[in-house]
Simulated assay, not measured.
Amino acid sequence: MIKDVQIDEGFTHINKQGRARMVDVSEKKKTDREAIACGSIYMKKSTLEKIDKGEIIKGDVLSVAQVGGIMGAKKTSDIIPMCHSIMMSGCDITFQLDHEKSKVDIIATTKTRGETGIEMEALTAVSIAALTIYDMCKSVDKSMVISDIRLFRKIGGKSGEINYF
């Protein structure tokens, strides 16, 4: 027989036995939700110039990173424990090349209509896009640094719109 463990009711991802659980969101109202995340990958100026000119031997870095980021967002619940599977209604990734600071800024926007937020998908999209850029450019620049991945804005749900920066 399993002993019942008393767990503080404030923990949302722990069951009565003290083990991990996925939160039940079935009683929550479906709302339109959007999340915007951003991050950067710093690199040598010569690497950024090669990306900009399409001279990276593996191909079009930003096109591949965009597809990789979208694919990553779609697989978020497969790689983040306790993350709900979400039917995304949209995912877009944009890039801004900053030659002065020698970096690529990555911005991911994810959307859904559902019971729970889509922030993890936006953060995953940025992360995978940055990792894809790293993978495609590592042969010419092993000193790249992925940095500053964060949630920029979320819209929807009971908390409404929150701007983090």
Rank of each mutant, 00 (worst) to 15 (best):
G156C: 03
D141W: 02
G117I: 09
L123E: 10
D105L: 14
H84I: 08
S143V: 11
K28G: 01
Y134T: 05
D105C: 14
R113E: 07
K154Q: 08
S127A: 11
T47C: 14
M22C: 02
H13R: 01
G114Q: 03
T132N: 08
G54Y: 09
V140T: 14
K58M: 04
K29P: 01
I86G: 02
D92E: 14
K3C: 07
T31N: 09
K44G: 13
S139N: 12
S139L: 10
S46N: 12
K28Y: 08
T110N: 06
M1I: 05
M1D: 12
R150Y: 10
M88A: 03
I93R: 03
N163I: 15
A20N: 09
A37P: 01
V140Y: 06
Q66K: 15
R19E: 14
D148F: 01
K138E: 12
I155R: 14
I41Y: 01
M136P: 00
E49P: 00
H99L: 07
C91V: 15
M144E: 04
F11R: 13
S46P: 00
A20E: 04
M88Y: 05
R21I: 12
V64H: 05
C137T: 15
R153N: 07
T110E: 03
M144K: 00
I133V: 12
G68N: 01
V145A: 09
Y42F: 11
F152W: 07
L48E: 06
I86D: 01
A73H: 06
T124E: 06
I128P: 01
D78F: 00
L48T: 10
S139A: 14
G39Q: 02
I106L: 09
K101E: 15
I2F: 11
V67M: 11
I93V: 14
A125H: 12
Y42T: 10
I2H: 10
Q96T: 15
K154E: 07
N163D: 12
I146M: 10
V64Y: 02
G69M: 05
G157R: 08
M88W: 09
I56E: 06
T110R: 06
T124I: 09
R19D: 11
I106E: 03
K142D: 13
V145H: 06
M120N: 04
G72N: 08
M1E: 12
G59D: 13
M1R: 08
D8T: 02
E55Y: 11
V25H: 00
I162Q: 09
D4T: 07
